[in-house]
């Protein structure tokens, strides 16, 4: 029985890696411009960095594909961690207002003239961290139910969104006001945005993988976790800090991409396991592959026009999410 389970998990890892590779290759191959991979590679091999093919590959498609992979990974893992720490399967960075907090901070940063790079990532992280701590402390201090936490998130989303809109109203020159930022988009990904976000995401995910047992022990309940020797307050802050780093990094690259932090952890729990040592890496792989695939679709479906990736994700993700919820009805009492 155990070996069957191990085999199943192994196959799911295989599928997740294949999905990620497929998404990455398709993302490089397809776009609004019809370019052949052989032309792009031959330009690179010949050292002709100024050719249109090489420039599109290096400065358009590659950062875009890497951005979608990194943001998908970050948001899916952040969602899984937030759900574990709050013991609330309905929570995700976009639903409880973490993305909106990061978005507000990025909006303020842009209004202050910060375009990209480490400082923008720092702004996004601070916004995400303050919001997630506010929700977490509120939930604990007032003994809020799972439903109340979600309603708090809805209210926070509205409030933070209103503040962002106020900032953009008085600073119409900033690009953050665009619809693309609000629903998530990779058309403006640059290496200046991507490099700090990638470093933050990879380090945060690695640390989280190390602490996967701690995340599971937290789900046993605060007192039982303390009885097992865990300093639950410290661990909770570490997890929320790392989840905020992930969400903030993603928002600084692609804007307020929603849904992936809710959908991917749920899907992985349904098809594979809730055990964090597998849940987190599978969320990273599936999240990266899913977002990247959606972004490629967003570029090619109405080429040469592009859709923001958030629209494609909602079209694909919502029916799939409803399907897995109905299929697994009653399967998870804690959901």
């Amino acid at each position: 029985m155990k070996s069957l389970r191990k085999n199943k998990i192994g196959y799911i890892y295989g599928i997740a890696i294949l999905l990620l590779l497929l998404a990455a290759v398709l993302g490089v191959l397809f776009g609004s411009s019809e370019l052949r991979l052989s032309d792009m590679l031959s330009s690179l091999i010949a050292g002709d960095m100024q050719s249109p093919e090489a420039r599109i590959l290096l400065y358009v498609r590659l950062p875009r594909v890497l951005g979608s992979l990194i943001c998908g990974m970050a948001l899916a893992v952040s969602g899984a961690v937030i759900q574990g720490v709050l013991a609330n399967r309905l929570a995700s960075p976009s639903i409880i207002g973490v993305n909106a907090g990061a978005g507000l901070a990025v909006t303020i940063g842009s209004a202050l003239g910060i375009i990209g790079g480490w400082r923008l990532s720092l702004f996004a992280f601070v916004g995400a961290f303050l919001t997630v701590m506010l929700v977490s402390l509120g939930a604990r201090k007032w003994g809020a139910s799972r439903g109340t936490v979600i309603l708090m998130g809805v209210a926070l989303n509205a409030l933070l969104g209103a503040i962002s809109d106020t900032v953009t109203t008085f600073n119409p020159e900033i690009s953050i006001q665009s619809l693309d930022f609000k629903i998530g988009d990779f058309s403006s990904v640059t290496y200046a945005k991507l490099i700090p976000a990638t470093v933050i995401v990879l380090i945060s995910v690695l640390i989280l993988l190390t602490f996967s047992n701690e995340l599971d022990v937290l789900t046993l309940g605060d007192e039982n976790a303390k009885g097992l020797g865990m300093n639950t307050n410290v661990m909770r802050v570490i997890f929320l800090l790392l989840s905020a780093l992930l969400a903030g990094a993603a928002v600084s690259v692609c804007g307020l991409l929603s849904f992936v932090g809710l959908l991917v952890p749920h899907a992985v729990r349904r098809i594979a396991t809730s055990e964090s040592k597998h849940l987190l890496p599978l969320c990273a792989l599936f999240g990266a592959g899913f977002v990247s695939l959606c972004d490629t679709l967003a570029r090619v479906v109405f080429a040469p026009y592009e859709l923001p990736v958030g629209i494609i994700m909602a079209f694909l993700g919502a029916p799939f999410f409803i399907f897995i919820l109905i299929k697994g009805k009653g399967g998870h009492r804690n959901a």
Binding site: L220, G221, E223, N224, G227, G229
Partner: peptide
């Protein structure tokens, strides 16, 4: 170190998904 000497089961226990 206390957890290596004393185990504790609280009254209100979650049903963790594991």
């Amino acid at each position: 170190e206390i957890a290596k000497k004393i185990a504790y089961l609280s009254q209100g226990k979650n049903i963790p998904d594991m």
